[in-house]
Amino acid sequence: MPPLLEVKELHTEFRTGAGVVRAVDGISYTVDPGETVAIVGESGSGKSVGALSIMRLIPDPPGRITGGEVWFAGRDLMTLSEEEMRRMRGSEIGMVFQEPMTSLNPVLTIGRQITETLEQHRGMDRAAADQRAVELLGLVGIADAKRRLEQYPHQLSGGMRQRIMIAIALACDPKLIIADEPTTALDVTIQAQILELMQKLTRQLGVALIIITHNLGVVARYAQRVNVMYAGRIVESGAAAALYHNPRHPYTIALLRSVPRLDRPRPPPLAPTGAPGQLSACFRSHELDITAGAA
C-alpha cells in the first residue's frame, strides 16, 4: 500500500534581519493510512514549521518553502493552486493547534465554527450541518451538545475547547490530522483525556495522525513511528519501540537521557551541554557536545 503522505526533501527558509534561517532543511518522511507518526524535537527544531509547510501555511514573506515535494493521496501539494490547497485544508487534512483559545474565533459560537467548515467543504445546508455538529460533539465526548453549540469559546474550559478543535478537524472526515502540540497548554489529567480521545477516534475512524510534540512520554504512549528533529533536520527516525530502546544518534541519546522519569528513582545527572546550533549559520552536528557526564 502506498503511503498516505510522503514528504520529500522539504526546505523552508525565513529571511530575517540576521540572515536566512533554514528552519526546515531537507526533511523526508512518510505516513501510512491510519498510522500515528510523531515528530519530536525541542523549541526551534523546525517541527512546527515542517507541519505548517505541508499545509502551505507559512507566511510569505518572511517565510518561503524553497524546495521539496509533499505527496498526499497521489498529488503533490506543492504544485496545487491556492484554491485547490484551500479546499484541501480542513477537508482532506485536519489540523489541531496548541492553543485552542487563539485558534477558535472568540466572537463566533462553537456551533457556527463547526458548521462553517461543513458548509464550506461539504456544501451542507444549515440544518444538515447543525445535525452533524451535534453528532460531532457527541463523538468528542461533550455532553449537552445543543447548549454547547450556542456557547462562545471563552465559556468553555481549555480541555473542552481542545475537544471542539478535534471536532472541527474531524468534521469533514479527513484522512490525515496534523496535531501541533495539541495538549501542551493543558493540565496533565486533561492532557490524558484528550490524547486518549484522539487515539480512540483515529483508530475508530481510520484517520492518520501526525503528532508534533516535545513530550517524549506522549510519543512513547501514542506513536507507532517517530521522527526526531534537531536544527531543521530529521536526525533519527524509526519505530517507536526501537528508537527508544536503541537510539543511535547522539542527540536522541542525550534527549532521552535528559528526561526525568516518573517511574524510576533519580538517575545520575546527565544532560547535553550548550544550546542548539544557530540555524542561520551552517550547522554541524558535532557542535552538540554530549560528552559532559557521558556514561
Binding site: G159, I190, Q191, L216, A220, R221, A241, L262, D263
Partner: peptide, 25 residues
C-alpha cells in the same frame, strides 16, 4: 490519577500500562 496521567517515555512500559483517565475537570 495524576501519576497515571503522565505518560512514561518508554514504549515498552506504556504498552503494558492499562489506563483510564480520570473523568471530569
Amino acid at each position: 490519577a495524576l501519576l497515571a496521567a503522565v505518560p512514561v517515555p518508554d514504549p515498552a512500559v506504556e504498552a503494558e500500562r492499562a489506563f483510564q483517565p480520570v473523568r471530569g475537570e
